[in-house]
Nucleic acid binder design. Structure first.
Length: 566
RNA sequence: UGCCCCGUGGUGUAAUUGGCAACACGCCUGACUCUGGAUCAGGAAAGUCUAGGUUCGAGCCCUAGCGGGGCAGCCA
């Protein structure tokens, strides 16, 4: 009775600060105790791992609290937005494993309503049309440490404002000639309250509304209202919007009729070491052809990670582990890498592929003979069965698995030494063949027929190598990726451009790799572990006669760590 | 020299809301292994930015500093 499972009690995981807020809101029956979130990207670029954190957060919270989550495209700026991006965003959210409530929403769907609210504010004397150019308005806004001054147009009558605003809408003015501003407080300590712009003139076709509008609402006059229209209860965004919150609330107070209010909550965006995360910088990498596209496997975009071989599960686990808080952070890429290894270790089949081949001839093995050896598909998953791999007289092993003068603790092949060939036999190196320049071109070995795998052979050797039968080998291309930047924080240097830290060796293409024949069946998106090397996935560049693999992440490598230390 | 936010091992996140710092990654040992992977066992690593205060007791509360970040788009 005294020691009954105290552990079970502790199992309730601790909550992050947003969950604490939500649970308190539920306890207080705020907004009828409902939880409704949304993921609101602007369709002006591809989603990256930072968005993945936000997606997991918003959709995850909805799931956890039996709520709903919308996907909403925040498309208030037609000059930057495109349908291409809308599509990639939907694909990425789905791929991560989430389904939004109903149809995707668009802020542009609310343009009529927003316009009505704008007229309402004008009539209430809380908004006015300003004729001044942008530079003048900016100057009048003051600075963070000094108050602004009021526009000479600030006290136009509602009637005049209404007429001017309608003329703006009707296309009577050119871009920049007039704006609609909220009449709040030019001396507010919060810059965003100094009569913020609500509408600007933009004679620009919108990807959804076409030419219907030539005035478009600003973010601040659209976001909270969109939340309100959709019944969002918890509007989660990143820290830089913290100072916008009073304005978010101010606009809502102008338009809301009942007691329902969405609540904005800010959290710290994700930063990853050895990469950049801003859309602007990622765009630059794409436009300057430093990478091959948004889905280049070196990019931190969701599409890049997908092509690199990351799984949705691994990214969701990563997002969980990263946590949610308000302090600035830089997550070690090692955590992301750990998340894929963990996932793929359980699921990926093991295959043998030699990246940098060295020929081995088994001199005591009959010429022309082939035997099929059974091997386990995945030792972590006994249900995944076995397959056969062909063995013959001539094989390839990894160049790095042989050394003529091996250091201590080198468990691989060397003159006179023995190793086990995975799922096959123990072989011994008898002779090293070299060309005139002294390069090793071939190894002559003998095998011990008594040591065939699976026969209960008792002999043990320290090393086990992967190998491929030369006769049966499939030629494949393998792309090895490394971090895109050499610096942990490439964007964090005051007077240096982030591109100065590009890693020149971030991509290495190997053309003559030798794979076991079973890999013939590999299809784009399949995940494999190449025995002793790492996890690899099939690239969409694959064509029938030419398989292409991307290395997702290498295996942890104790030997590499040992040698690096020296 | 205004306003807002933040400050816990190398990194990130916790600490039953005031009870004497935990989890994960990374790192180091060792065991095991037909992957130098995985797994298993163990270890080093913060005394919670600083200084005061309240309290029997403070990472949690108060005060003052210090440090980091954000805010002056007709971007989001």
């Amino acid at each position: 009775m005294e020691n009954i499972a105290p552990d079970k009690e502790k199992e309730k995981a601790s909550l992050n600060f947003i969950e604490n807020i939500i649970e308190e809101d539920i306890r207080n029956n705020k907004n009828d105790g409902k939880v409704y979130t949304r993921f609101p990207p602007e369709p002006n670029g591809y989603l990256h791992i930072g968005h993945a954190k936000s997606i997991c957060l918003n959709f995850g919270l909805a799931e956890k609290y039996n709520g709903k989550c919308n996907l909403r495209f925040d498309d208030t700026n037609p000059v930057k937005e495109e349908t291409e991006y809308v599509e990639s965003i939907m694909e990425d959210v789905h791929w991560l494993g989430f389904q939004w409530e109903g149809e995707p929403r668009y802020t542009s769907d609310y343009f009529d309503q927003l316009y009505e609210w704008a007229e309402m504010l004008i009539q209430k004397g809380k908004a006015y049309v300003d004729d001044q150019p942008a530079a003048v308005i900016a100057a009048q806004r003051g600075t963070p440490t000094s108050p602004g001054i009021e526009s000479p147009y600030r006290n136009r009558t509602p009637e005049e404002n209404l007429q001017l605003f309608r003329e703006m809408r009707d296309g009577k003015y050119k871009d920049g000639e007039k704006v609609l501003r909220a009449k709040i407080d030019m001396s507010s300590p919060n810059m965003h309250m100094r009569d913020p712009v609500m509408y600007r003139i933009l004679h620009e076709a919108h990807h959804r509304t076409g030419d219907k509008w030539c005035i478009y609402p600003m973010y601040d006059f659209a976001h909270g209202q969109s939340d309100y229209i959709e019944g969002i209860t918890h509007s989660i965004c990143t820290l830089e919007f913290e100072v916008h919150r009073p304005l978010y609330d101010w606009f809502l107070d102008q338009i809301a009729t009942g007691s329902y209010r969405p609540r904005q909550i800010e959290f710290a965006r994700l930063n990853l070491s050895y990469t950049v995360m801003s859309k602007r910088k990622l765009l630059e990498l794409v436009e300057k052809k430093i990478v091959k596209g948004w889905d280049d496997p070196r990019m931190p975009t969701i599409s890049g990670l997908r092509r690199r071989g990351y799984t949705p599960e691994s990214i969701r686990n990563f997002a969980d582990r990263v946590g949610v808080a308000k302090r600035d952070n830089v997550i070690d890429v090692a955590l992301l890498e750990h998340s894929v290894r963990e996932d793929l270790n359980k699921r990926a089949r093991r295959y043998m592929v030699v990246l940098d081949p060295l020929k081995v001839v088994i001199t005591n093995y009959p010429e022309g003979k082939t035997e099929m050896l059974e091997t386990v598909n995945n030792p972590e998953d006994p249900d995944d069965g076995t397959r056969e791999v062909p063995f013959s007289r001539e094989l390839y092993i990894e160049k790095a698995d042989f050394m003529e003068n091996p250091p201590r603790k080198f468990f691989r092949l060397a003159p006179g030494r023995e190793v086990r060939l995975k799922s096959a036999f123990i072989i011994k190196c008898d002779e090293v063949i070299k060309d005139e320049q002294g390069n090793i071109t071939e190894l002559r070995c003998t095998y011990d027929p008594e040591t065939r795998s699976g026969t209960g052979a008792q002999r043990k050797v320290k090393g086990t190598l992967h190998w491929v039968s030369a006769l049966h080998a499939l030629d494949v291309e393998v792309r090895l990726y490394d971090r895109l930047f050499n610096d942990p924080d490439p964007a964090g240097h005051k007077d240096k451009d982030f591109k100065e830290f590009l890693n020149p060796d971030s991509l290495k293409v190997l053309q003559d790799c030798k794979a076991e024949p079973a890999l013939q069946a590999a299809r784009p998106g399949d995940h494999y572990q190449f025995q002793r090397l790492g996890y690899f996935t099939v690239d969409p560049d694959t064509t029938p006669g030419h398989p292409v693999f991307n290395r997702t992440v290498p295996l942890r490598d104790a030997w590499a760590r040992m040698t690096k230390k020296k």
